[in-house]
Amino acid sequence: MQQFAGRPFVLLGVCVGGIDAPQLEQMMEQAGLTWRSFVDEGDAVAGPIARAWNVSATPTFYLIDHQGVIRYKWTAPPSAHTLQTALEKLIAAAEQDASSPP
């Protein structure tokens, strides 16, 4: 993910493990995890965000373009090649839009 630093891309988590913010903060700090993550409280994989997004298992990934449209969904980790190809394509489109006058 470092290779996309400085480009219009962000990794956001939704922690659906049923823990609250202080517990998540402590766990992520100990594990050295730095991405920003929504906290989905309630039972594991049964919090309001997991329910609204129909998530039934982890990991589930959605790749959303710069206009807020879902472009890919993976219910298992995609291969590095698949992810790289998809990211490169969407990030390039975001950069193109940002550089062209409105």
Partner: peptide
């Protein structure tokens, strides 16, 4: 995780990889 409120749409303009994890 720090208790700060935010929205998915705050990141409009960026490509977002949303990872449901545990």
């Amino acid at each position: 995780q720090h208790g700060t409120a935010f929205k998915l749409s705050d990141y409009r303009g960026k490509v977002v990889l949303l990872d449901f994890w545990s």
